[in-house]
Simulated scan of single mutants.
Amino acid sequence: MSSQSKISDSKSVSKKSTSSANTVDITFPFANQSSIIRSVQFDEYYQDYLINETKNLFKQIFGTRKFIKYENKIAIISRFLYYILTSILGNQTLGEEYCEIIPIKNSTKTPPSKLTKIYGILFQIGFPQLTILFLNKLQKITKTSNNTKEIATKSTKSDTLKKFTHNQIPRLKTLLEKYIYAVHISLFYINGRYYEISKRILKNRYIFTRKLQKNEDKNKYEALGYIILFEIFIKLIKNSKSILSNVDEDEEKENNEGVPKQYNYLPEEEKNQRKCTLCLEFCKDISVTNCGHVFCWKCICEWCQKKNECPLCRQHIQLSQLYRIYNY
């Protein structure tokens, strides 16, 4: 009886060990800051390569003029294409594959679904661009409405609200670009959790798919995060008066310098004729090439430093052959 009991006990122990071995969760360590940053740098490198190749192909097919008009949109579409070919199709990005990391949901410790990946890419690429475009559009709308109602003797509540909105938009851009993103990066350096704002919103983290070496998981960037927070605090103290006051009036004067007031009241056809084909804005410091095409002085000078040819007709030009036009 004792031998049978021992055998039964050994069998039960072996069953428990095998069942416990089957139920053990294999956990992987979270990726550190250096690996995440290296992965992002690799992804940006290959994205830039794809963007340049797409731009060159677009320029060869549709010409320089349309290329200048759609250059920013080509870059955004190329970035989306990069993540569609890698992450959305279920693969690692080239940076993630190089650094041997994969994203997971912090709550469930499982890889994110395809829909979650799409949301993350939209937040990462599309949301900042759409936010800036929306703020620029809103600023233009409030500005034109203010200009058209300058003649009115009494200002209504809607006019004061539009004027207040127009003055606050540049400060909101400054807060978004300089302070909010900087605080986000400093928190990443301190705790190593979320490098992109999109991953912070969706609670997605990175884990290693390999065994770590000794002292590899130590946080080496915590001091840098606190230094950035201290720098932000000093900037806020210095710029507190300028943020609360009308700091952007001088910038508006610089941007509108050289643009006559009559330009805002011209028909759209005449406005298009007075625009520079490089920056697509009103021609400032008008200059003409030896082939007879008109551009902004600054735009055509920057163009000639890259290519010695007219952007429209491809005729050879030089900086010494540009002429300024006054009272045009």
Rank of each mutant, 00 (worst) to 15 (best):
L81E: 06
L81P: 00
Y82K: 01
Y82P: 02
Y83R: 00
Y83D: 04
I84S: 10
L85M: 15
T86P: 06
T86N: 06
S87I: 04
S87L: 12
I88H: 02
I88T: 03
L89H: 11
G90K: 10
G90S: 13
G90H: 12
Q92H: 09
L94F: 14
G95S: 10
G95Q: 04
G95D: 07
E97D: 14
E100Y: 09
I101W: 00
I101R: 01
I102N: 04
I102W: 06
I102V: 15
P103R: 00
I104T: 09
I104D: 01
I104Q: 05
I104M: 06
N106F: 08
N106Q: 14
N106V: 06
S107H: 12
S107W: 06
S107F: 09
T108V: 09
T108N: 08
K109P: 00
P111E: 11
P111C: 08
P112I: 03
S113K: 13
S113Q: 11
K114G: 02
K114N: 03
K114D: 03
L115F: 15
L115M: 13
L115N: 10
T116H: 06
K117L: 08
I118W: 05
I118A: 11
Y119L: 12
G120E: 01
G120V: 05
I121H: 02
I121W: 06
L122F: 07
L122S: 03
L122H: 00
F123Y: 15
Q124K: 05
I125F: 00
I125S: 05
I125K: 05
G126P: 02
G126N: 01
P128K: 02
P128L: 02
L130E: 05
T131W: 05
I132Y: 01
I132M: 08
L133S: 09
F134P: 02
L135F: 10
N136L: 10
N136A: 09
N136K: 09
L138E: 07
Q139E: 11
K140V: 02
K140D: 09
K140Y: 07
I141S: 12
T142N: 07
T142S: 07
K143V: 01
K143T: 04
T144W: 04
T144R: 08
S145N: 15
N146T: 11
T148H: 06
T148W: 04
E150P: 00
I151D: 15
I151E: 15
I151K: 15
A152I: 11
T153P: 00
T153A: 15
K154S: 03
S155N: 07
T156H: 10
T156L: 11
T156C: 10
K157S: 14
D159H: 12
D159E: 13
D159V: 03
T160I: 13
T160Y: 11
L161S: 07
L161V: 07
K162S: 10
K162F: 12
K162D: 08
K162V: 03
K162M: 13
